[in-house]
Amino acid sequence: MSEDKTLPKDIDSDDSLPGRYEESNFEYQQPISPQETAPKSKSKSLAIGIIVFAIVSAGFFSYYFMNQNEIDSQIVQNTLNMSPEQILAEQYNVGKYGSDHAHAAMLVVLDGEQLNFGLPQFQLSSKYIHFEDHNPYLIHKHATGVPLDMLFVSIGLKVTQDCIFVEYDFSKSANEFCTEGKKTVQVYVNGERFLSDISQYEVQHNDRILITLDDKSISKHLKYLDSFKIFDVPKKPLVNSEKDIFI
Rank of each mutant, 00 (worst) to 15 (best):
A54N: 11
G191I: 06
S241R: 07
P34E: 06
H221Y: 15
A143I: 06
L238W: 00
T160R: 06
I51F: 09
H101L: 08
I230W: 03
G118R: 04
M150T: 06
P237C: 01
S57D: 11
E3P: 00
Q186M: 08
N240I: 11
P147L: 11
M106G: 04
A58H: 02
K229P: 00
G156E: 06
Q161K: 06
S173H: 12
A105P: 05
K40S: 11
G59E: 00
S171T: 15
F122V: 00
P8M: 00
K182D: 15
L7M: 08
S199P: 02
L225W: 04
D4H: 03
N69C: 02
L148R: 05
Y224C: 00
P237M: 03
T6V: 09
G112T: 11
S227E: 13
Q204I: 01
K127D: 11
V153K: 11
V108W: 03
L138M: 15
A104D: 05
E85C: 07
G145N: 07
L119Q: 15
V166T: 08
T6K: 10
Y97H: 04
M150K: 10
D215M: 00
F122M: 03
D10Q: 09
T144A: 09
D214R: 03
F246I: 13
A174T: 14
I129C: 04
S33R: 14
R20F: 05
E90A: 14
P39H: 07
G145M: 07
F61G: 09
D232G: 12
F231E: 15
D215R: 01
N67I: 05
G19L: 02
